[in-house]
Design a binder for these strands. Structure first.
Lengths: 119, 119
DNA sequence: GCTATACTTCGCCAAGTGACTAAATGAAAT
DNA sequence: ATTTCATTTAGTCACTTGGCGAAGTATAGC
């Protein structure tokens, strides 16, 4: 029950849902997610941690850079990911995010990070 | 997005998940759900309202009695119900609830209501 | 070792939420 | 119309949560 609730809670916040679905096109670095969501790095870090605890995303470190990707760590998490992606498929905000993620991916990572930490 | 979040939020509380899945064996009257959950009627009423708003349950009135049943009002709600039921299939608490619901169904409705409102 | 940088954790605040009691509402019985 | 009864709504309280800035941690470069 605890893991089910952790997944449901992870998916009950719009910011986190947007962060999660922004990974559909492939993994992103934290600073890229920060750029997308336009929130503080600490807030985004916390949200990604919640998604990770729920088994919805996985992360890897490359030096100072932390990358997150979609990941269904458990059957419940996999099913929840399917649910979310199908349910929000035509959602305008998600489509807009996807468009912006493409731009962000085209930017130099250092530039993105510089922007998000120095304001 | 709003309806997706409403469903996810509805499913992020253990009490509400138990209330929802208690309906798997067929509709229940509010007082029966109260008896199962051992919470105040007002609390249960509010929880059922949240589930209804999310499109996960439907209700009908029969005089003073209000009955709730599982209902997937939207594709997202139906998929979420499937997710919840599958994910929590072997869950001990849910199985225990199902056992108790059988007992509660065998009790006279007036007796159940009397019990839950007078004490 | 020191400095710079990306990220994480801590502490704070305001808003949100689950549980309760009391009051209000709707339906049934008299 | 009044009373009884099942449920709903309103208000309160303690706890939780999303967002922030500051401090802490981990990594890279010199």
């Amino acid at each position: 029950m605890k893991s089910f609730l952790a997944i449901a809670k992870a998916l009950s916040d719009e910011t986190r849902v947007r962060a999660l679905l922004s990974l559909q096109g492939g993994e992103l670095c934290l600073c890229q997610v920060v750029d997308l969501l336009r929130l503080s790095p600490s807030t985004v870090s916390k949200h990604m941690s919640v998604l990770g605890q729920a088994g919805l995303v996985a992360r890897r470190r490359e030096g100072r850079w932390i990358y997150y990707r979609l990941s269904g760590a458990t059957p419940a998490a996999r099913a929840a990911l399917r649910w979310a992606r199908r349910s929000l498929e035509g959602e305008k905000a998600i489509a807009e995010d996807a468009r912006r993620v493409c731009c962000i991916r085209g930017k130099d990572l250092n530039e993105v990070a510089n922007c998000c930490y120095k304001e």
